Amino acid sequence: MFPELKPVVIAEQTVLYGPVLDQAHLFGLLARFRTYRLPLTEMRPLPTRSP
């Protein structure tokens, strides 16, 4: 369903994480969530690393 995202189970919830390349990619991911009727609770960027 989401080959570009990696699943991790945390506190009985599945968290998917991975790169979102651009706005078109984001909208495509959101469309797939709707297609599969998966609830999307939260979406946020990963923290950036400092050098």
Rank of each mutant, 00 (worst) to 15 (best):
M1Q: 05
M1R: 02
M1L: 09
M1D: 08
M1C: 06
F2D: 02
P3D: 06
E4N: 01
E4H: 02
E4C: 00
E4F: 02
E4W: 00
K6W: 05
K6C: 01
K6G: 00
K6H: 03
P7S: 05
V8H: 02
V8T: 04
V8Y: 00
V9Q: 07
V9S: 07
I10V: 11
I10F: 04
A11R: 09
A11Y: 03
A11V: 06
A11S: 06
E12V: 04
Q13L: 04
Q13K: 07
T14P: 07
V15C: 08
L16R: 08
L16N: 09
Y17H: 07
Y17N: 05
G18L: 04
G18M: 05
P19Y: 14
P19F: 13
L21V: 13
D22K: 05
D22F: 11
D22G: 12
Q23H: 10
Q23G: 05
A24N: 14
A24M: 12
A24S: 14
A24V: 14
H25A: 12
L26F: 12
L26Q: 06
L26P: 04
F27G: 07
G28K: 01
L29I: 15
L30A: 13
L30F: 10
A31L: 13
A31S: 14
R32Y: 13
R32G: 09
F33G: 05
F33L: 12
F33W: 07
R34I: 08
R34N: 10
R34P: 06
R34M: 08
T35C: 02
T35M: 07
T35L: 12
Y36C: 01
Y36A: 09
R37N: 11
L38T: 00
L38M: 03
P39Y: 01
P39L: 00
L40G: 02
L40D: 03
T41C: 04
T41I: 08
T41R: 09
E42L: 06
E42I: 06
E42Q: 03
E42K: 01
E42S: 04
E42M: 03
M43E: 01
R44F: 13
R44K: 13
P45H: 11
P45V: 08
L46R: 13
L46V: 15
L46Y: 14
P47D: 15
R49D: 12
S50K: 04
P51W: 10
